[in-house]
């Protein structure tokens, strides 16, 4: 080692190197990212059921940059009330309890999910029906005894009120069904789909005097909950005696793996789950986007909602796997569009 110690190593290359790196990144960012200048920005969050639709709309819509995230209907409404989002997605109506969480008066929310006055945060949510969701009850491909079920039978299978242990104990199936154990693979309690399914089959669901609880809460181990539709799909595909349910949008992509059951809400008006049959099929629910009041003309949200409710936006809905408004009620879209000034 030379006796002369260089106290200042040459560090020009270092500064230059890291500088170039950073600049390169920023430039690359600028080039690829493209600066669109004045395009308005919107934030959309909420229901995971609405999420695929929201992504499709955000991708196709050019007049605003929309970032979309999930987290659930309650999160969507809560975020709107807290001014954390421009558009709150929900697969259920707003409830008094949503107002309560931000310190508001529960009486300000109608049973129809509309607000009659502002929450303490100053936000007055306004409800837009944007599409319909169809819920499909699913069984194994080899199941030939339960290709159609009514609400009484679903009640017997899915609730804790004297539930059927074997398939042949389900009323009305009788001797055609095998003496084999029923296994349920379906969404867990955190899911909005779970809530909707039981709201349909259990009378007075959610009230103090509701008729039964779900089989998941009976603790007999027959109901295997899962947060992932993949799991439900695979389990039912692999088990001949399994039954479950999930959104039609997911079934649509997997018709080769499982079969959907025809459903009757009375005794024998069985209806096939499909997009075109939405008017007759009993398990269909509206999907909502909530905004703060009715956005004025010229507002980015107004433009966006016009697109969503208009022919272009609605044309995407069936492709994603949901039901467009015209199939349910041809006046639904036009009525809402007129409120937006279109």
């Amino acid at each position: 080692m030379p006796p002369v110690i260089a106290l200042k190593p040459n560090r020009n290359w270092l500064i230059a190197g890291s500088g170039v790196l950073v600049i390169a990144m920023v430039v690359a960012a600028g080039c690829i990212g493209g600066d669109d200048g004045d395009t308005p920005k919107l934030v959309q969050t909420g229901s995971s059921t609405v999420l695929p639709l929201a992504i499709a709309w955000a991708a196709e819509y050019d007049d605003a940059e929309i970032t979309v995230s999930g987290g659930g209907s309650s999160h969507g409404i809560n975020a709107l009330l807290n001014k954390e989002t421009d558009l709150g997605d929900a697969s259920r109506l707003m409830k008094g309890s949503d107002y309560e969480k931000v310190g508001g008066d529960t009486g300000l929310v109608t049973s129809d999910g509309q607000a009659t006055g502002p929450a303490p945060t100053g936000v007055t949510p306004y409800k837009w029906v944007v599409a319909y969701d169809v819920l499909a009850t699913i069984v194994n491909k080899d199941n030939d005894w339960a290709e159609k079920l009514n609400y009484t039978q679903l009640y017997k299978i899915f609730t804790d009120d004297d539930p059927a242990k074997y398939w042949d104990e389900v009323p009305g199936l009788g001797s055609t069904a095998p003496h084999e154990k029923i296994e349920i693979y379906a969404p867990d309690e955190a899911s909005g789909t779970y809530d909707y399914f039981f709201e349909e089959i259990i009378p007075k669901w959610g009230k103090d005097d509701m008729h039964a609880d779900t089989r998941l809460n009976s603790g007999d181990g027959v109901y295997h909950p899962s947060a992932d539709d993949n799991v439900i799909l695979n389990a039912i595909r692999d088990n001949k005696y399994a039954i479950g349910y999930f959104g039609f949008a997911y079934y649509k992509d997997n018709t080769d793996k499982v079969q959907a059951v025809k459903i009757a809400d009375e005794d024998d008006n069985y209806e096939e789950p499909s997009l075109s049959n939405v008017k007759n099929y009993p398990m269909a629910r509206p999907l909502y986007i909530y905004t703060d009041g009715i956005p004025e003309e010229g507002d980015a949200r107004n433009e966006y909602l016009r697109y969503v409710l208009g022919p272009e936006g609605q044309a995407l809905v069936p492709e994603v796997g949901y039901v467009d408004l015209d199939l349910v009620d041809p006046t639904l879209a036009s009525g809402q569009l007129s409120k937006l000034g279109a």
């Binding site: 960012a29 690829i32 990212g33 920005k41 992504i55 955000a58 991708a59 970032t67 979309v68 999930g70």
Partner: peptide
């Protein structure tokens, strides 16, 4: 977020 069509162009995006 889960989906965005463009890169963010501000720190509050």
């Amino acid at each position: 977020a889960i989906f965005a069509k463009t890169a963010p162009n501000g720190v509050m995006d």
